[in-house]
Design a binder for these strands. Sequence first.
DNA 1: GTTAGCATGTAAGGAGTTACATGATTTT
DNA 2: AAAATCATGTAACTCCTTACATGCTAAC
Lengths: 209, 209
Amino acid sequence: MTKRSGVLEFAVLGILHEGPMHGYELRKRCNAVLGSLRAFSYGSLYPCLKQLLAAGWIAKDTDAAVPGKRSRIVYRLTAEGKEHFQSLITETGPSAWEDDGFGVHFAFFGRTDAATRLRILEGRRSRLEERMDGVRSALARTRERVDSYTLELQRHGLESVEREVRWLNELIETERSGSTAAGSDVPAGGATALAPVAPVMTTEITRTS
Amino acid sequence: MTKRSGVLEFAVLGILHEGPMHGYELRKRCNAVLGSLRAFSYGSLYPCLKQLLAAGWIAKDTDAAVPGKRSRIVYRLTAEGKEHFQSLITETGPSAWEDDGFGVHFAFFGRTDAATRLRILEGRRSRLEERMDGVRSALARTRERVDSYTLELQRHGLESVEREVRWLNELIETERSGSTAAGSDVPAGGATALAPVAPVMTTEITRTS
DNA sequence: GTTAGCATGTAAGGAGTTACATGATTTT
DNA sequence: AAAATCATGTAACTCCTTACATGCTAAC
């Protein structure tokens, strides 16, 4: 129980729900789903796949198929993997509140139930409120030499957090009003905070860095 | 030239401009200045200080002083360290455009000249615009199965980037209008985008994670 | 007098990147 | 026939955290 990769492991298991995939494709999907949250390289993906294999959460088949073609390795989720993913996404501990942790949990919200979603959203919100309190009380207590740029950075950072809290509030309300249909992929209700499913971004997000 | 820590090194050198400090104090100031951007532990700070000493960028004196008291170690910036910091902050390469890199650069904007500030702000902006283009063109091209939560996450992510771009636009304009007073800590002008320097947050931001 | 916070480190290990290595297949 | 991108890895290294270890000092 070596406390594996966390975010990457989570994402891989989540994405493999879409169906069997080979490593290359998995990485693309992963970076597409996580968007600007996170990007991974093969240097972390392949070792991760190895570990997931060893744990029995995924299995690999070789895509032999056409004779003339090179055979590629296709990974698929096992029953144990599905189970493990469920236990990961249902977990409402601190890892579901951190920046990255919350992001992946949210990205796969469709794979869990409404009650869990609500717990995680509320956990995240109170986490952010703690942060805001810390900043604000520090603001009230101390007044120290800080140049205007540092100040501006902190002001902007605080606003970002406030904005996320407002977003969470909307999501929580939507989640509550649609909570009759537990486990449904899309919560019920007409005027929800969730955008209508229409054109969608899928391919890899440019990470020129 | 082992390509030292980057952000932490940068922050330590920047903060030591405020005056000599011992490690404990430095960490607090560091986490206060960087705010929600980043937090560091002693496990990275002390080794970093060691490396900076070896490089000759900082020096340590023992705060002997009062006889009855325990003597603490006080670090101060050397002339070489000051010089090195200037070369780091003036650098307008990609490291000044990444999320973390930009943040630290911005936090110490007061220590560089208006021209450099402008270059970095514009570099950051075009970096973010690239990202947005990537997302939007992907959005136009592909329409794939993505549940509404993933979509919502991406929409929110995109809005965050758009918001930062607007912020950068304001800063760039302020910087341009105040650019007559090069090298000044606070740009000239009455109605600037920079908040009035008043109560300021200084103490450590709660990182309960 | 005890709790909280000041103060200084080290060792082990986790999580990831970059650069290397290699080759197949598709597009222009 | 060249360029792009698909495809699969490994080795070395970076940067950082957690947990350990130790003791001082101020405040209640």
